[in-house]
Design a protein around this nucleic acid. Structure first.
Lengths: 336, 336
DNA sequence: TTGTATGCGTTATCAG
DNA sequence: CTGATAACGCATACAA
């Protein structure tokens, strides 16, 4: 734990009796520097355990080789998988990842962006919080030169880069799977109405019902605030209907966990009295004795991969990203 | 998306026909600057939408207000919980978090440290990878002035700050719980032998057995490499013993998931033919129809909280951290 | 092939 | 109270 100040280029130069610029160039393998000099410099740098001061370099180059990632929370497997991919892509590009969890709080989200701006990140990847009203957030972001790519939870705006999953294909497959098995009373337990993701599910649900000529019953859509209590309440509402549904598409796997648990309390037998399909396709079902009928894959890795690639192409000023990119993956039902 | 270069202090100064230093001071509420001037400057800064260039400030102040966090992987709830706490503490101190997942690969771990050093992070929090031999990693880290605090997976070294969970108390409680229920054939499915965490478990296991006068049988300790296959192999080994154990302490909850699954395939009835207790206390058991007997809580939040606090105290050069801190939380059995 | 000079944006020191 | 100047460490245009 010696108190040595870090070595600088100047010191190497002095020791070698050459100019700092030569040292700088040698260290950066500048072609105009003689091989011998280069070697000498590198050797000395090694000896003096020189470490370039990146803060100086960042400052000078107006680049930080850092990207910021904003997502709701890492405890959701979707995001922990996504960030792993992002980190991996970043690593290959010699970039580092600054992390910000919004916890679905819009104010936090705004703070994170401000912090990222201060830190002069070279780019930002965002999955919007579940309660984010587009407007404020976007206006803060718009005022910046920093390239931004949205993924998963994307704003309903043109002129931004976004990568997301089309929920409707999965919904269609879910309703189809239910229908084929004779279900006609199919409910939707949806997230908060304010949420774009919820709206999309509602639209997709109605469309899919229509496709199979199942009449839409507004009692069959209930909302949850995604808390345990909210999930149970939603389930209770459905169960107490005179015409109880035999199949449920739920907002996501976490919600379904609560639904199944609650159903059991109510004496409802899973995959007999009631069938479930939810979004996310989390790995947890594999270990359940009695998993729900299916889950809809939303491809976190692929989304993250594409989003990161687009972001880096923005940073590298590739031409094609001058027009807003919109990449849509179809979601896909996976039967359990 | 205007191509405006960010405003600088100089430009504000020029516009106001005063010197850059005055602007700087006004912006920082320096007491020696007149109220009027301060106001004028701030107003102009606002108008020109001035944003301080942090990279310049970092450079000058030799501080980045960034800490690096190295952990094995975020898909483990332990770490996603830990990082949330860390982020929270960092946020309060106006710090940002740089993320690095080692994925239990020592080479990656080393690269991450190098990157963090380059980025001149003000401090590093590390939970060592499961396969990390202390030596290399530590020597890289030792050569740095950057304060480091280890948590959870800590090196077996003095002279470093570390926060971790004492696995033996939980083990003792687990063996006790088994013993009270009449089990005498208690096995340990442990992680790789190379791992400190494994060694600790082995020691604790033997000690606890001794306490209850249960003779130690070396056949009752089997190792897994923590892959699904490894877990199944370990289980297979135990099951094929002439004197099959009736109770198992396993490395962690994820391993137990595989064990239970495999036990079922073998026709072994959970909580009847065989009982399980594992480390981690992940929230998943709540949703299982037939959970294992218990799980041992390792307090990710508390560990992360203390580790982060100590790190920031190092950064702030609090006196007490001049001597290496060692904080140990007891682990605790939670019956399901 | 190498050296010299300059500037990135900010703040601290010293003068006024 | 305010202004001029230097300095942080590095990269680069220009000179030699």
């Amino acid at each position: 734990m010696a108190g040595n100040k870090p070595t600088t280029i100047k010191e190497i130069a002095r020791k070698l009796k050459i100019s700092p610029s030569t040292v700088s160039r040698a260290l950066n393998d500048h072609p105009s520097i003689g091989l011998v000099t280069t070697m000498r410099v590198k050797k000395m740098a090694e000896e003096m355990s020189y470490e370039p001061n990146q803060t100086a370099i960042f400052f000078k180059q107006r680049k930080t080789f850092t990207i910021g990632v904003i997502l709701s929370k890492l405890s959701e497997p979707f995001f922990s998988e996504a960030i792993s991919v992002i980190e991996h892509v970043a690593e290959e590009k010699k970039y580092t990842v600054l992390l910000g969890q919004s916890l679905d709080d819009e104010q936090r989200e705004l703070n994170i962006v401000q912090t990222f701006k201060k830190h002069r990140v070279d780019g930002i990847l965002v999955s919007l919080g579940k309660n984010t009203g587009d407007t404020d957030f976007m206006s803060v972001l718009a005022k910046t030169e920093i390239p931004v790519v949205f993924f998963d939870c994307v704003p309903d705006l043109p002129n931004v880069h976004k990568v997301y999953c089309d929920l409707s294909s999965g919904m269609e497959e879910a309703i189809s799977a239910f229908f084929e098995r004779g279900h006609h009373k199919i409910a939707l337990i949806n997230g908060p109405e304010s949420l774009l993701a919820s709206k999309d599910r509602t639209v997709a649900y109605k469309e899919a019902l229509a496709k199979y000529n199942i009449p839409f019953d507004s009692n069959y859509i209930v909302n949850t605030d995604l808390t345990e209590q909210g999930n149970e309440d939603a389930m209770e509402k459905l169960c107490s209907l005179a015409d109880r549904p035999s199949a449920v598409v739920s907002f996501n796997d976490f919600v379904t966990l609560d639904l199944i648990r609650y159903a059991k309390l109510r004496g409802i037998v899973l995959n007999q009295d009631m069938y479930f399909i939810s979004y996310a396709n989390y790995p947890l079902w594999k270990y359940m004795d009695n998993p729900p009928m299916g889950s809809i894959e939303q491809y976190p890795e692929q989304q993250a991969q594409r989003a990161a690639e687009i972001l880096f192409d923005c940073i590298d000023k590739k031409e094609y990203v001058e027009t807003p990119q919109e990449v849509v993956f179809p979601s896909k039902l996976v039967l359990k």
